[in-house]
Design a protein around this nucleic acid. Structure first.
Lengths: 143, 143
DNA sequence: TTCAATGCAAAAGTTTTGCACCTCT
DNA sequence: AGAGGTGCAAAACTTTTGCATTGAA
């Protein structure tokens, strides 16, 4: 908790219980939740928290590089506290979104034999398909 | 025009002026428009066209593999008549979205030295940065 | 003729905004 | 004390849906 407050302070943000709660949640989850999910989760421990504050907080965090917004084609954006550029997988079967640790699929634009005329700031790779768990299940439920 | 009707028919779709208009527009643009833009563009030549029909049409097309949905983190989805998996660039300066023809950045998951435990159906690479035009301009307008 | 597509309007869902009040510093 | 954050409600946007009417086969 103390550390989170420190991080926020260093970014020039006023430290509030709401901001600490949102950042801590994102640090400790692998689920890449959207704003609604963050709100519902924190509601339990922070009953006065409002959805608008979650949105405003995520917006600040995004601007300051504390979180990364991820858009996999659902109605809403997901958030990731891992801000370093890294690929994601999206299971078209169960809907899970995961970080993918794979050097061959990271920093692709820096490995090109011929440079692009496009100056890359950030690259985002999303692999859509079937996660290991759903491959095992191999059920039609997925289609 | 005749060819477009043919394509729709082959997909089992009833051929209507609205569907022909939407598909033709997507075939002839490089701008990766969203539903609203498609609607506004076609409104001129198809005054009775409704936005709901554009959405419904895009949905059919997506399902049948006639178009690809592209989500670059704006409020709305963009559409591309090039359905083959290929990388895109998004200029953080002027907002333009372009197809990127680069073999090194295409079919990445098929070139891995070690296979993933994730079964890839489709990969989507988006490069965010500055397009050639905006690099030339090199104006603060972009930030 | 028949079934599906269209257009309209209303609804649903996500995100933003304005403002009075509250809270960190 | 003062700047800035929070919560609420309303608004703004994007997308979906229901239904009567229209149009393609």
């Amino acid at each position: 908790m103390k550390e989170t407050a420190q991080v926020l302070r260093e970014k020039g943000l006023k430290v509030t219980p709401q901001r600490i709660a949102v950042y801590n949640m994102l640090l400790h989850t692998q689920s890449h939740p959207n704003a609604e999910t963050i709100y519902r989760t924190l509601e339990v421990t922070n009953p006065t928290m409002s959805l608008a504050t979650v949105y405003k907080t995520l917006d600040y965090f995004k601007q300051l590089g504390l979180v990364q917004e991820l858009n996999v084609g659902e109605g809403s954006a997901r958030y990731d506290a891992v801000v370093r550029c890294h690929p994601h997988t999206v299971c078209t079967c169960c809907g899970s979104v995961s970080d993918l640790e794979n050097d061959e699929l990271t920093n692709l634009h820096q490995k090109l034999s011929t440079p692009l005329d496009f100056q890359v700031e950030c690259e985002q790779l999303i692999l859509y398909g079937k996660c290991a768990k759903c491959q095992m299940a191999e059920q039609e439920a997925c289609e």
